[in-house]
C-alpha cells in the first residue's frame, strides 16, 4: 500500500477520526499527567510522613490532592477500559457500511476486480490507527496503575486494573474494530450496524469475562496471606490449607465441620494455614496472553469471514 492510499483512507474517515484521535490524545496525556503528579505527590507525602510524629495532621494538605488524583486516576482507568470499544465501534462499522449506504461501493468494487485490495486499503490504515491509539491508551493506563496514590504494589501491579492496561487495550480495540467491520458488511446501514455492534461487543466481553473468570477460578491456587504477595493477585476467597496434605478446605466447609477457631480473621486451627485462593500476580502476563490469543483468534476468523462476505455481497 502506498502512502497515497493511506491518506485517502484517512480522508474518507473524516471528522470521526479527528474526534476520536483527539479523545485518545487527551486521555493519554491526561493519564501521563495524573501518573506523574501522583508519583510526585506521593513522594512528597512519604517525605512529610517520615518527618512528623505518628498521628499528626501535618501532612493533610498533601493527602487531599492525593485523593483528587486518585479520583482522576480512577476516571482515566475507566476511560481506558471503554475507549478501545468506542474506537473499534466508530472506526470499524463505517469501513464497509458507509460505502454501501453511500453507494460508493459499486464504483469501487467495479474498479477493484478482487475486492480484497479494496478491503485491505480501507482496513489497514484504520487498523494501524486503532493499534497505535490502543497502545497509547494502554501506556497511559499502565502508568496510572503503576502510580497508586495509596495502595502499594510491592511485588508488581499484577492483576490490578485488569482491562485498562497495555496488555489488553490494543487487542480489545482491534477485536471490536474487526467485529464492527464484519457487522457493517452484514448490515450495511451505519446506525443499525453501530447498535448491533455495540450489543455484540457487550455480549462478547460478557462472555469473555465469564469464560476467563471460570477458567481462572479453575486454575486458582493457594496464596499466602500477609506477605504483600496478594496485592496484585486475582483473589477469590480465603480457605484453609491442610499443612500435612496441602488439601484446601473452604470456609463454608470449615464452618459446617464446626472446627473451633480462636480468631477466624487471622489464624487457623493447628495443622492448618489460612490462605487466599486466587491467581498470583506474576501470572498476569500469562492470562493477558491467553485473553489476547482468544481475541486475536476470533479476530482472524471474523476478518476472514468478512473478506468472504465482501466478495460475495451486492454493493447496494
Amino acid at each position: 500500500m502506498t502512502w497515497r492510499a493511506w491518506r485517502l483512507t484517512f480522508r474518507m474517515q473524516g471528522l470521526v477520526l479527528w474526534l476520536l484521535g483527539g479523545a485518545v490524545v487527551v486521555l493519554t496525556v491526561g493519564s501521563v499527567l495524573v501518573a506523574w503528579q501522583t508519583h510526585e505527590t506521593r513522594a512528597a507525602f512519604d517525605v512529610c510522613l517520615a518527618g512528623v510524629a505518628p498521628g499528626s495532621n501535618a501532612c493533610q494538605s498533601i493527602s487531599a490532592p492525593l485523593n483528587d488524583l486518585s479520583l482522576w486516576g480512577g476516571t482515566a482507568k475507566l476511560a481506558a477500559q471503554w475507549m478501545p470499544l468506542i474506537l473499534g465501534l466508530f472506526l470499524g462499522v463505517p469501513v464497509v457500511a458507509r460505502e454501501i449506504e453511500g453507494r460508493t461501493a459499486a464504483m469501487a468494487w467495479a474498479l477493484d476486480p478482487g475486492r480484497g485490495r479494496w478491503l485491505l486499503q480501507r482496513t489497514l490504515p484504520v487498523l494501524a490507527v486503532v493499534l497505535v491509539a490502543g497502545i497509547l491508551i494502554g501506556i497511559g493506563g499502565e502508568l496510572v496503575t503503576l502510580a497508586p496514590p495509596f495502595q502499594e504494589h510491592p511485588l508488581g501491579a499484577g492483576f490490578s486494573d485488569y482491562g485498562s492496561r497495555l496488555g489488553q487495550v490494543p487487542v480489545r480495540a482491534i477485536a471490536v474494530l474487526v467485529l464492527g467491520i464484519a457487522i457493517g458488511t452484514l448490515v450495511p446501514r451505519q446506525l443499525p450496524a453501530l447498535l448491533l455492534t455495540g450489543g455484540a461487543t457487550l455480549g462478547l466481553f460478557m462472555a469473555l469475562t465469564l469464560g476467563m473468570g471460570a477458567w481462572m477460578q479453575a486454575e486458582a491456587e493457594p496464596i499466602p496471606i500477609d506477605h504483600g504477595y496478594e496485592a496484585g493477585a486475582h483473589l477469590y476467597e480465603q480457605v484453609f490449607q491442610d499443612d500435612a496434605t496441602g488439601a484446601l478446605i473452604s470456609t463454608a466447609e470449615f464452618d459446617q465441620q464446626q472446627v473451633p477457631t480462636d480468631n477466624p480473621e487471622a489464624s487457623a486451627p493447628p495443622g492448618m494455614t489460612r490462605v487466599w485462593l486466587g491467581v498470583p500476580g506474576e501470572k498476569y502476563g500469562l492470562w493477558v496472553l491467553r485473553e489476547s490469543g482468544i481475541l486475536l483468534g476470533l479476530t482472524v476468523l471474523v476478518g476472514a469471514a468478512t473478506l468472504v462476505l465482501v466478495r460475495r455481497r451486492r454493493p447496494a
Binding site: 485517502l8 480522508r11 474518507m12 473524516g14 453511500g102 453507494r103 460508493t104 459499486a106 464504483m107 467495479a110 476486480p113 454493493p315 447496494a316
Partner: peptide, 18 residues
C-alpha cells in the same frame, strides 16, 4: 471479467470528503 469492464452504477455517488 471485471478487467474487461468499466462500470457506472445508477445514480453514481462520489466520496464526499475526497
Amino acid at each position: 471479467a471485471l478487467t474487461h469492464v468499466g462500470y457506472i452504477p445508477q445514480s453514481p455517488s462520489l466520496y464526499d470528503t475526497l
